[in-house]
């Protein structure tokens, strides 16, 4: 069976596209026929997609409510519909209990949780009208199991797990599917920021003996965005190579 055009003609909105997992999802969706509104914060970070007519780079901060509203208005005007929302933008700052500042808490929740809720609220307006739509949220294995030094990050991802399940239940009658991907140790800049020693320690906890790559997550996002998963909703899918936390 060919899966080369699983998203032919679908309109997708993907956040956090400047690097890592978001960038891999962007590539994979474009390769599979989607028109992708790609959100990135850093201006110019999507310049290499300039020649791709199906890629619509949008430089904005997902915590900026007026920018969020504008991108949905733009999609409404330009396409008249939206088929897939991928909430990938996120931030991770590790800190031990007792050293987590209020500013860090507010900043991390703003990006990892509040912005996701806002995006879901706008996207579901399209989806309810269409009686179709897919939402994919990026959680984390830490959001399911927790981890020392990651109280803040893991709690935001835990929120993603539960909001995914709630949204799936509320939106299922409208034929809207909501799922989350919980990546394990994926070889991205974000992971490398914890230091090589810590990466080596992580490897010892992965049964498959290797780090994942962003494309592993992107392929799962492709499955969830496509009709191959039309009876899948409310699931948290681990992409972790058998990682123990």
């Amino acid at each position: 069976m060919s899966n080369s055009k699983l998203l032919d003609g679908k309109i997708a909105l993907v956040s956090g596209c400047n690097r890592g997992i978001g960038r891999a999802i962007l590539h994979t969706f474009l390769e599979n026929g989607a028109i992708v509104y790609a959100i990135a914060r850093t201006h110019g970070s999507l310049n290499d997609f300039e020649s791709c007519p199906n890629c619509k780079p949008t430089y904005m901060d997902v915590t900026d409510s007026s920018a969020v509203k504008s991108i949905f208005m733009r999609i409404k005007k330009e396409q008249g519909r939206l088929d897939v929302l991928v909430n990938n933008a996120g931030m991770m700052k590790d800190a031990l209990i007792g050293m987590i500042s209020k500013e860090q808490i507010e900043q991390t929740y703003s990006v990892n949780v509040f912005a996701v809720i806002e995006m879901i609220q706008y996207a579901s307006k399209f989806f309810k009208r269409q009686q179709s739509g897919v939402i994919i949220n990026l959680a984390s294995i830490m959001g399911v199991n927790g981890n020392p030094g990651q109280l803040l990050y893991s709690s935001t991802k835990g929120a993603i797990v539960t909001l995914t399940k709630s949204a799936a239940k509320e939106l299922a009658p409208y034929k809207i599917r909501v799922n989350a991907i919980a990546p394990g140790a994926i070889d991205t800049d974000m992971l490398r920021s914890i230091g090589e020693d810590n990466v080596s320690k992580l490897l010892k906890n992965i049964y498959s003996g290797k780090l994942g790559v962003a494309e592993d997550v992107a392929k799962t996002a492709l499955f969830l965005a496509s009709d191959l998963s039309e009876y899948v909703t409310g699931q948290i899918i681990g992409v972790d190579g058998g990682m123990i936390v």
Binding site: S65, K69, F72, M73, K76, E118, Q121, Y122, K125, K128, R129
Partner: peptide, 18 residues
């Protein structure tokens, strides 16, 4: 309520804030 909002947005071609 959400049905009403959807009808208003469609009718007046707007996107209402939460």
């Amino acid at each position: 309520h959400m049905q009403l909002i959807s009808a208003l947005e469609e009718q007046f071609d707007i996107m209402m804030e939460t």
